[in-house]
Every structure is written in structure tokens, then in C-alpha cells.
Amino acid sequence: MQNLKKTNHWLYQRHSDNDIDRARLIKKPLAALIIMLGGMSISGCEPADDVENNSSIIASEQRAQNLKVSADIEDKIINSYARVASKHAHICPKLIQKQLDNSVIERTAEVMIKDSCDYFLYPKIGEQIAVSLDNDQIEALLITPRTYNFANGGYEVTSYDKHVIRLAYNGAGYKPENFRYDVAITIE
């Protein structure tokens, strides 16, 4: 603003009265132009900031979507591995499915090599899941979608999600290297 006053002062001193009238006419548009340019430089920063904010929002949404996709892929790989493992007694985790005409899934002569074995299943909402074992040294727990101990009885399914039943060795002594057991999972 100080430069504008100096410019106006210089215009008044140097020119005649006609020039002074012209300078007054120039003064208003010049001030308006300076105000416009100042406003543009200030508002000119805002869209760039908006673009940066939008790009960071888009980048974070894309990262979240990529994480979800990678988690879905990982889950599908684990399920496909579990489907293959269900055909073998000594490989865990296992994907198990109820037969149409039978509500009991029986697995005999299963072998627990590590300290636990997981069984994946996808029951319908409202169905009851119960687990019975031939050995008291094994603990049957539902670990996904929520924690539940099957020693308390059956569990009622409240959501259509992957349910993971973990059979874990819970004996007083050391677990044998190839611990054999029979399990029956009832879904009604």
C-alpha cells in the first residue's frame, strides 16, 4: 500500500493538472487491480491446498482399500489351504462343511502335531454349534467371531461370518508328538 502512495505522489508532482486528472482516473482501477491480484494470490493457495488435502484423502482411502483387498486375499488363501487340509488328518487348519442330510461332522483319527488345530466353518444365523471330543485333554474354543468355551454347552450363531473352532491340548503333562483324537461338531 505504501508503494501505491509513493506512485500516486510521484504522479501528482511530475505532471500537469490534466495529467493529475488522468492519474486520479488511473488510481481507482490500479487499486482495484492490486486488490484483485492480492486476492488471487491468497485464494490461489487455497485450491492447491484443497488438491493436496484431496490427494492425501484419496491416498489414505486407497491404502485402506489395498489393506482390505490384501486381507481378503490372505483369507482366501488360508481357506483354500484349509480346504485341502481337511482331506488330511495331520494338517491344520481345516475347512469343514456340514452335509445336507447330516448335521454332525465327524472327524476320526485326527492328529494334532502342534499345540492346537483350527477348524473353519460358515454356519447360518440361528444355528447351534456343539463340539464333543473323545479326550478330556483337549479344550474346544470358539475364537472367531467371538470367544466362547464349548465346555459351557452349545453356541448359537448370531452372524454369518467365518467361525473358527480351536482345539487345543490342555493336558497336565507334555503333549505327545502326534496326539490322536476324534471330534464331532454338531450344527443344528
Score class of each variant (00 low, 15 high):
Val69Met: 09
Val69His: 10
Ser70Phe: 03
Ser70Asp: 14
Ser70Val: 13
Ser70Met: 13
Ala71Arg: 08
Ala71Pro: 07
Asp72Trp: 10
Asp72Ile: 10
Asp72Val: 11
Asp72Leu: 00
Asp72Gln: 09
Ile73Trp: 09
Ile73Lys: 04
Glu74Phe: 01
Glu74Lys: 00
Glu74Ile: 02
Glu74Leu: 08
Glu74Gln: 09
Asp75Tyr: 11
Asp75Thr: 00
Asp75His: 11
Asp75Phe: 08
Lys76Trp: 09
Lys76Ala: 04
Lys76Ser: 06
Ile77Phe: 01
Ile77Gln: 01
Ile77Tyr: 08
Ile77Trp: 05
Ile77Asp: 09
Ile78Gln: 07
Ile78Phe: 01
Ile78Gly: 05
Asn79Arg: 14
Asn79Glu: 07
Tyr81Ala: 15
Tyr81Gly: 12
Tyr81Ile: 15
Ala82Leu: 08
Ala82Gly: 00
Arg83Thr: 03
Arg83Phe: 04
Arg83Trp: 01
Val84His: 04
Ala85Asp: 05
Ala85Arg: 01
Ala85Pro: 01
Lys87Gln: 15
Lys87Thr: 15
Lys87His: 15
Lys87Trp: 13
Lys87Ile: 13
Lys87Cys: 10
His88Gln: 09
His88Val: 15
His88Asp: 10
His88Met: 10
His88Glu: 12
His88Ile: 14
Ala89Met: 14
Ala89Gly: 05
Ala89Asp: 14
Ala89Leu: 14
Ala89Tyr: 13
Ala89Asn: 12
His90Phe: 09
His90Gly: 02
His90Thr: 06
Ile91Val: 09
Ile91Ser: 12
Cys92Leu: 05
Cys92Glu: 06
Cys92Asn: 01
Cys92Thr: 06
Pro93Asp: 02
Lys94Pro: 03
Lys94Val: 10
Lys94His: 10
Lys94Ala: 03
Lys94Met: 07
Leu95Ser: 06
Leu95Gln: 04
Leu95Ala: 09
Leu95Phe: 11
Leu95Thr: 03
Leu95Tyr: 04
Ile96Lys: 10
Ile96Cys: 10
Gln97Asp: 12
Gln97Ala: 15
Gln97Gly: 11
Gln97Thr: 14
Lys98Asn: 02
Lys98Ala: 02
Lys98Leu: 08
Lys98Met: 05
Gln99Val: 03
Gln99Arg: 02
Gln99Met: 06
Gln99Asp: 02
Gln99Glu: 06
Gln99Thr: 01
Gln99Phe: 05
Leu100Val: 13
Leu100Gly: 00
Leu100Met: 08
Leu100Ser: 08
Leu100Glu: 09
Leu100Ile: 11
Asp101Cys: 00
Asp101Ser: 11
Asp101His: 06
Asp101Phe: 04
Asn102Phe: 10
Asn102Met: 12
Asn102Gly: 12
Asn102Thr: 02
Asn102Val: 04
Ser103Gly: 07
Val104Gln: 01
Val104Ile: 00
Val104Tyr: 08
Val104Glu: 07
Ile105Thr: 02
Ile105His: 04
Ile105Cys: 02
Ile105Phe: 00
Glu106Trp: 03
